[in-house]
């Protein structure tokens, strides 16, 4: 068959049908085809950058022996653009450091959990505050009065003596300054008034002292005597008046 083709071409030559184009011109045509088309479209004002990209796809794919139409080239270009966009977005997402999560950016479930936790913490704090106000008034109660000790009088009498001194101190120093130990713990006061009741014959000797809890140091000491049980209350008032200056 190659012989027939050669003979046919020789006949074309013989009858002067052939108008041969040099190889260099053939190559030139190949390289200038797209530029020529762009030049034409520009000269008639029908060219845009987007269409230039479509032409690039159209001619490039044809060189790769893929022969899409121009319409198909547009679809390929759109797909390529989308792919590039996705790749760029993904790369930026990978490269850019992620900002720390803030409560307002948390998912709804996390927000709900956080809100619940916050409310719980606030409630606990409020409860603790209330508890402190009830059980830990050390800030305001500077002086705590302990039940006095004694080998000669009963516990009720000792408590009564401590209560009497406390009441007088409350009256003198103010209700926020003095408290009975037992109502609050010793650790909740700065100073403690403690004492003892002794009996010598018919005379009761009431000894009281104020101790700085933190320094474990005696700040004040006094004693009063009472001949009768009725005088005990008067003695308590005197002790209270003397101790009042050491409440601060």
């Amino acid at each position: 068959m190659n012989g027939s083709i050669r003979s046919f071409e020789r006949i074309l030559e013989r009858f002067r049908f052939r108008e041969p184009v040099p190889d260099s011109v053939q190559a030139h045509i190949l390289t200038t085809k797209r530029r020529s088309l762009i030049g034409i479209l520009k000269s008639v004002d029908d060219y845009s950058i987007t269409y230039g990209l479509v032409l690039a796809v159209y001619f490039t794919t044809r060189r790769m022996r893929i022969r899409p139409t121009v319409a198909q080239s547009k679809i390929i270009l759109a797909a390529l653009a989308l792919t590039v966009l996705l790749v760029i977005t993904f790369t930026i997402w990978l490269v850019t450091p992620q900002p720390a999560s803030r409560p307002d950016t948390l998912p709804q479930a996390a927000v709900s959990v956080t809100a619940t936790a916050t409310a719980t913490i606030q409630q606990v704090q409020a409860d603790e505050k209330m508890l402190d106000e009830k059980t830990a008034p050390s800030v305001r109660y500077r002086l705590g009065v302990e039940t006095f000790t004694s080998d000669f009088v009963g516990v009720n009498e000792r408590k009564r003596i401590a209560d009497a001194i406390t009441n007088e101190l409350l009256r003198l120093a103010g209700p926020d300054r003095v408290v009975r130990i037992g109502v609050v713990g010793r650790k909740n006061v700065n100073r403690v008034l403690l004492g003892a009741v002794e009996r010598l014959g018919d005379t009761y000797i009431i000894t009281a002292k104020i101790v700085d809890v933190e320094k474990s140091r005696v700040l004040f000491s006094t004693s009063e005597s009472a001949g009768t049980e009725q005088e005990i209350d008067t003695a308590c008032e005197r002790i209270a008046r003397k101790a009042a200056g050491h409440v601060e």
């Binding site: 068959m1 108008e19 041969p20 190889d23």
Partner: peptide, 30 residues
């Protein structure tokens, strides 16, 4: 046939393979 393009250049111009160009040209000549 007329402008004496090589199969290779013709294939590139038309976006075809060289074998395809050769085959089609042979068929036309026949």
């Amino acid at each position: 046939a007329v402008h004496n393009f090589s199969y290779s250049h013709t294939a590139k111009q038309l976006g075809l393979t060289k074998r395809m160009v050769e085959y089609r040209y042979r068929r036309i000549v026949e």
